[in-house]
Amino acid sequence: MTNEDLQNIITGLGTDLEFTTEASEFLNVIVPKEQLHSICSQLKSHPELKFDYAFCITGMDWVPALGVIYHLNSTELKHEIVVKVMVEDRENPTLDSVHDIWQTADFHELEIFDFFGIKFNNHPKLRRIFLTPEWEGFPLRKDYVDEANMIIK
């Protein structure tokens, strides 16, 4: 299925979706954070999409917005898209968890919470998976400063 076909189908799934293929090999869909869960579950269940394999989930800090990038693949129909979601609130960023759609999101969301501080609603057990529970700050954010251990250019 070509990216245009995908775009046509996905457009009907939600409102205010942005599409772009600029500077990326995949079709990028930017989803408003309120619609994230509903669109993701439709992406998986829609008979012509069937995105059942989330092969990469990346936390991102586009200063000032934080966000998550989902690389999705359909093991049956062999097409791929990228879903992006952004959240502007840096103090208390919150997104919906998609672990009930792709169970791999469970661990990846833990990693993103650990390094970017994005909280996920309905996540079964949100905790710091790599860092110690008392760690302050979120290291992969661009404004994270650790004067002792980081070389700042």
Binding site: C56, T58, M60, D61, Q103, T104, D106, F107, H108, L140
Partner: peptide, 18 residues
Amino acid sequence: YRVKFRSPGFSNLSVLNH
């Protein structure tokens, strides 16, 4: 600007409990 490694072990480990 940002590099992410999607490592096979991390995803494989997540299924262990299941």
